[in-house]
């Protein structure tokens, strides 16, 4: 690992100033950053340690009813916060389906949003990767790419965003609070991550020095709590990234859908909101035929980027299953195997 300067600011303003210097990176838990540094994937000159800043580790309900979560709240702390988990059960389930207990105890909310893709060619310094080195080429094209993107990819990059947490968050219109050189601003989570297009080296719309200080879930989102699920298919049942995942949430009135939220994970370089599916669902009777139509609509623009055509059909089925589970009601407690298609009580088919 390349040596670096270690600085520890005492205020957000100082942190932003320090991180605005070229070659700087913010350090929170470091769960992803240190891994990347050990592999020589990134090599910052300066780490700006924000873990000692005060006031960024709170979960609070604001006067307007929205829930604000500080960027330094640990994943486990949020998932096990009884009030939060009862209002946003799909978010808690997504958190508990990711990583391991050790990582969830360390990893932060802000860090989860900014984690890098797990594309094997991005991680391997000997491979060509446009995300790691602009213009270098993409060895994932024509390489081992069965887990790569089927939506929103470009010839320059077919990587996916690995977060589980972000999938229900984007479904619930989460807003990201950012502080930067020009002061504070809000960015809808749906607009935080960039699709690759011609510039895959850019992960997010954040500018140099920008720091995520909190996220906000709008008050209206908790009306979905009785019918909210996260479902994740992975190659082993624990400690694996999603092959495909889906968050599904419904507001129901006697079997009729008043409002629906659907988002996919593991399919694109951002958490993928499926608005076409949501529009199709709203106003209709919740049944299997409708769920199939919604799933088809969500994947209408999907195309394989390699040996991964199976992910398109898998995504459709995961949406149908997640919607059926959501319709049958949020369980009182997250299953022993969170978000697993093999968890007890998750065996019925539509």
């Amino acid at each position: 690992m390349k040596s670096f300067e270690y600085v520890r600011p005492t205020t957000v303003r100082e942190a932003v100033a320090a991180a605005s210097e070229p070659g700087s990176a913010y350090l929170a838990a470091g769960s992803n950053l240190l891994d990347l540094m050990k592999g020589g994937v990134v090599a910052p000159d300066r780490l700006v340690d924000i873990t000692h800043l005060t006031g960024l580790d709170r979960i609070e309900t604001l006067a307007n009813g929205s829930v604000r979560i500080g960027a330094l709240v640990r994943n486990a702390e949020l998932a096990h916060d009884a009030h939060f988990a009862s209002h946003f059960p799909a978010v808690a389930e997504a958190l508990l389906s990711g990583a391991t207990a050790q990582l969830r105890n360390a990893a932060t909310v802000g860090g989860n949003l900014l984690q890098r893709t797990r594309c094997g060619y991005f991680y391997d310094a000997a491979s060509a990767c446009n995300k790691r080195v602009a213009g270098a080429g993409c060895d994932a094209r024509g390489g081992d790419n069965r887990l790569h993107a089927v939506l929103g990819w470009s010839e320059n990059c077919i990587a996916t965003h690995p977060s589980d947490f972000c999938v229900p968050l984007v479904a619930f219109d989460t807003v990201v609070e950012v502080e930067g050189r020009a002061g504070k601003r809000d960015i809808p989570l749906d607009q935080l991550h960039c699709l690759p297009a011609d510039a895959p080296e850019r992960d997010t719309v954040l500018e140099r020095g920008d720091m995520i200080v909190a996220i906000r879930l709008p008050a209206a989102a908790d009306r979905f709590a009785p019918h909210s699920r996260y479902l994740k298919v992975r190659e082993r049942t624990s400690y694996a990234f999603a092959v495909v995942s889906a968050a599904a949430a419904l507001r129901l009135d006697a079997g009729r859908i008043l409002e629906a939220r659907v988002a996919l994970g593991g399919v694109a370089l951002k958490p993928w909101r499926a608005r076409e599916a949501e529009l199709l669902l709203a106003g209709n009777q919740a049944d299997a035929a409708l769920f199939h139509r919604a799933a088809t609509a969500a994947l209408v623009d999907a195309k394989p980027s390699g040996d991964n055509g199976f992910k398109i059909e898998l995504a459709r089925r995961i949406i149908v299953r997640a919607l059926s589970l959501a319709a049958s009601g949020t369980p009182a407690r997250v299953a022993a195997l969170p978000a697993s298609a093999f968890a007890s009580g998750v065996t019925h088919h539509v």
């Binding site: 270690y6 350090l27 470091g30 769960s31 240190l34 891994d35 340690d49 050790q102 105890n105 360390a106």
Partner: peptide, 13 residues
């Protein structure tokens, strides 16, 4: 009191 991976934790922090 919380279990973590010590390999991914900077002592400096």
């Amino acid at each position: 009191g919380r279990r973590i991976n010590s390999c991914l934790t900077l002592a400096a922090s």
